[in-house]
């Protein structure tokens, strides 16, 4: 028996909007720790890891570890039917091939049930090793989203270079080149507007903008994004989900031939 009640149902709506275009089908894993997902995109270039900790739910009942295969497009369709202020409850019985999403309006005057078919998904679970990153950039998520969008109108790839002075995003295409430098800036009034760079050594890596743009669909989940970079390692683009967990995107850097 599984029953998860999330008062801030909009979080789950935003999570699905963030990942549904990157991943088609995925297993949601439910355990005492929380509600989680790890999945690769169809070309196995990017990986998404989601964790919503059990403590973040108003009610969290998971009698035994359960893996539920879902089509994320279909799940997003169902969650779109929940209001932004609705409380969302996920329910599944042991051995059942369906999951039920219950939406309650804040005033309890409208209660909806949506039952969705589960699917069997053969998914590979990857071990993500702990890594010491050469550079960690923390910046406003809206700024990062804007940069990825702007650069993708000029080129297909972005070179992210971090030095003590700042982080540089560069691209080149048929019409020309673009460089955007964000300097370290931790003296702003609001912490969510700061750009903070922790660096042990300079790093410069090239990534496909198509994937970066897809990751920025998680922007509504957090005002801050963290980019963790190391030579020859996938970048980690992390959006923290307030008091609940995170959504992390991993993208393999392009390699010069």
């Amino acid at each position: 028996m599984l029953e998860l009640r999330l008062v801030q149902g909009s979080l789950l709506k935003k999570v699905l909007e963030a990942i549904k275009d990157l991943v088609n089908d995925a297993n949601f894993d439910c355990s005492a720790t929380g509600f989680s997902l790890q999945a690769m995109d169809s070309s196995h270039v990017a990986l998404v890891a989601l964790l919503l900790r059990s403590e973040g739910f108003e009610h969290y009942r998971c009698d035994r570890n359960l893996s539920m295969g879902m089509n994320l497009g279909n799940m997003a369709k169902m969650l779109k039917c929940a209001g932004n202020d609705d409380i969302i409850t996920l329910k599944a019985d042991d051995g059942s091939d369906t999951v039920t999403f219950m939406f309650e309006s804040p005033t309890q005057d409208k209660i909806s049930d949506f039952e969705m078919k589960l699917m069997d998904i053969d998914s590979e679970h990857l071990g993500i090793p702990e890594a010491e990153y050469h550079a960690i950039v923390r910046m406003p998520s809206s700024e990062f989203g804007r940069i990825c969008k702007d650069l993708s109108s000029i080129g297909d790839t972005v070179v992210i270079s971090v030095t003590k002075e700042g982080v540089k995003f560069s691209t080149r295409g048929d019409i020309g080149t673009a460089n955007i430098v964000c300097r370290q800036n931790n003296t702003v009034d609001k912490p969510e507007e700061a750009t903070i760079i922790e660096m042990t050594e300079p790093v410069s890596l090239t990534f496909a903008l198509r994937y970066m743009n897809s990751f920025t669909k998680a922007t509504p989940l957090s005002s801050i994004v963290t980019l963790s970079l190391s030579s020859d390692l996938p970048v980690v683009v992390e959006y923290k989900i307030a008091e609940m967990g995170y959504i992390r995107f991993y993208l393999a850097p392009k390699i010069e031939e």
Binding site: M40, S43, H44, V45, A46, L47, E124, H125, L126, G127, I128, P129, T157, T206, A208, L233, P234, Y250, L251, A252, P253, K254, I255, E256, E257
Partner: peptide
């Protein structure tokens, strides 16, 4: 030119 490696090149199956 540049090549796009897969994520499985960096992270192994468990």
């Amino acid at each position: 030119g540049s090549k796009q490696p897969t994520i499985t090149r960096f992270f192994s199956k468990v």
